[in-house]
C-alpha cells in the first residue's frame, strides 16, 4: 500500500459492519457477493463478536452511498448474515494495527525508537540488523509513520485493515427492517430519483 498524506487522496470509503454466522464458508459467501456485484473491498477483518456463534466483519468499501446501500442490502440477503449496517455517517472509533519491519544498524535504533515514540508506537522486536515497530491508530497515523520509516529501509509490512465501532451507547447491531424504508426516503431526498454514479445501461 502506498502511504499518503491526506485522507482526501483516498477514494470515498464506507465502513460496513456485518454480523455473520460463525460457519464454514461464510467468508466465501460474502467474498462471492462482493465479486459478483462488482464491489471493491479495501479491507475486511473478521473476528468473534460479543454474541456466541456470531462473527463480526468490518468491511471497508470504496464507492458512493448508493452503491454501498446495495452492498448493505445484498449482504443482508445472505442467509448467514444476521445484520449489515453502513456506519460511515456515524461518529466512529476506527483503528488499524500495523507491524513494520525496518532495517537498522545498532547505531540507527535510537532514531527509530524516537520516531516511534512520537506516534506512541512501540518497538516489539530488535535484531542485529532490524527492528519491528508496532503502531496502532487510524489509517492516517499508520500511513504517516510508514512514510517516515520508509527511508530507513522497509523490509516488511503487515496491516490488519480497519476495525470500527460506533461511539457512544449506540451499536452496529441489527436494525429493524423498516429502517430500510426510512433510509430509502432519505436517499431519495438526497439524490433525486436515480442512483448517482456509473449507471447500468440497457444491456444487449
Amino acid at each position: 500500500m502506498i502511504a499518503t498524506n491526506s485522507q482526501h487522496a483516498h477514494p470515498p470509503q464506507r465502513v460496513v459492519v456485518a454480523h455473520v454466522e460463525d460457519r464454514p464458508g461464510v467468508l466465501a459467501r460474502v467474498a462471492s457477493l462482493f465479486r459478483r456485484r462488482g464491489f471493491n473491498i479495501e479491507s475486511l477483518t473478521v473476528g468473534h463478536s460479543d454474541e456466541p456463534g456470531l462473527s463480526r466483519m468490518t468491511i471497508v468499501v470504496d464507492g458512493q452511498s448508493a452503491q454501498v446501500q446495495q452492498v448493505e442490502r445484498q449482504l443482508f440477503k445472505l442467509v448467514d448474515v444476521v445484520s449489515a449496517i453502513d456506519i460511515s455517517e456515524r461518529p466512529l472509533v476506527a483503528r488499524e494495527l500495523a507491524l513494520i519491519k525496518v532495517s537498522c544498524t545498532p547505531q540507527g535504533r535510537r532514531d527509530i525508537i524516537a520516531l516511534a515514540d512520537v506516534f506512541r508506537a512501540t518497538v516489539v522486536d530488535v535484531a542485529d540488523a532490524s527492528v519491528i515497530v508496532q503502531v496502532l491508530g487510524d489509517e492516517d497515523k499508520v500511513d504517516a509513520l510508514l512514510r517516515l520509516l520508509r527511508p530507513y529501509g522497509l523490509l516488511e509490512l503487515v496491516r490488519t485493515g480497519r476495525v470500527a465501532m460506533v461511539r457512544g451507547s449506540g451499536t452496529s447491531k441489527p436494525v429493524p427492517v423498516s429502517e430500510i424504508a426510512r433510509r430509502a426516503e432519505e436517499e431519495r431526498a438526497q439524490f433525486g430519483r436515480r442512483p448517482d454514479g456509473a449507471l447500468p445501461f440497457a444491456s444487449d
Binding site: 448508493a66 427492517v177 424504508a181 430509502a184 426516503e185
Partner: peptide
Amino acid sequence: QIIHLDIDPAEIGKNFHTHAPVL
C-alpha cells in the same frame, strides 16, 4: 413518481430511487 411494492429490500432503489417503497 415511483411506488414500489416488493418483498426484497435489495430491489428497492436498486435501479431507480423509489418515492414510496412498500416492503
